[in-house]
Design a protein around this nucleic acid. Structure first.
Lengths: 172, 172
DNA sequence: CTATCTGCAAAAACTTTGCTTACCC
DNA sequence: GGGTAAGCAAAGTTTTTGCAGATAG
């Protein structure tokens, strides 16, 4: 493994959990276009789950997505949400986020980015760290391991959890 | 968040799952010493679980540790293994490994290191990437996030899974 | 001694599966 | 219309909890 990294600076970004309408819209458009192109079925449920995940930039669990979507789709079941998330991941529309705690979390943001993880409340925020993109992974590591992608979590303490006053943020 | 990384080279290391007797011994010694110093109880079960994790560098699950340890400790239960792993983590003797799949995995290696994750068989290998150690985390990110540690997974394909011939390695 | 840990069993949390019906293309 | 996807319920995994009894320091 040989990775060359140069110095890099962070692109600040307002912490918010929801993406804007416009961004969500264009993500959904791209999703539908790609599905049609590849002959992947577009169902009410699939679209609803994808849209909910596109809207929520807070890396929700399957259960959280279910809660968001169920009111809009009559009779939706959690099992279906899991099946949909699986297939969306297989088809490369979403990604599973690496975590250290129990439940699986998902992300519709496919661009190369890093996660700022608060070790107090568990919140996960996206952070685009410029310069990391230009890293080069080459050669092979121990036992012939060939690196393909880099997954970086930056663990620390988020703003809300640092402030002594004010109610503690407890997110799931 | 401001992180400065210079170029770095990887320290090759033979892929093996078990640490040597000597290394395990010194880890256990340190563990016992630290427990006594901090007044943390040393029980047969705790020591056995810690030792099993110290020996297995393959980032085992709770269940895998239980399987390794149960023969040596009469009547040990999986619930106890979970409780022990929790407390060892709280006390800073072990760490939970970040993963993308369901089950929790643990690591007794507290030194700063990275994980090479095979996306085919799921194997997780340690890799000491020189130079990363000298990174500097400073300043604060979006919303006042203060970074403390870096958790890097290098995802790719391990040697066994790359070789066309030979049986596929399927680890859990 | 006594606060803490363990065993056991049960529950909770999370995820997958089987099978029938519904519906996209 | 054919085949994939969804609904529902049940089972599978993984992890946590309650409580009585054991034990390290």
């Amino acid at each position: 493994v040989r990775i060359i990294l140069r110095e890099y600076a962070e692109t600040p970004r307002k912490p918010r959990s929801d993406r804007g309408i416009a961004e969500v819209g264009s993500m959904c458009d791209r999703f539908e276009r790609e599905c049609r192109k590849r002959g992947i079925r577009i169902t009410t449920q699939r679209l609803a789950v994808y849209k909910a995940l596109a809207r929520d930039a807070g890396h929700p669990t399957a259960d959280a997505l279910y809660a968001r979507v169920r009111s809009g789709v009559r009779g939706l079941s959690l099992a279906t949400v899991y099946r949909i998330l699986d297939s969306l991941e297989r088809d490369g529309f979403i990604r599973r986020v690496s975590t250290t705690d129990g439940a699986g979390r998902y992300d519709a943001n496919l661009e190369f980015h890093q996660h700022l993880v608060c070790r107090i409340c568990g919140r996960i925020m996206d952070s685009q760290v410029e310069g990391l993109r230009s890293l080069s992974l080459s050669g092979s590591g121990p036992g012939g391991f060939v690196p393909e992608t880099l997954d970086v979590r930056i663990v620390g303490k988020c703003g809300s959890c640092r402030r002594p006053r004010g109610r503690k943020t407890k997110l799931n």
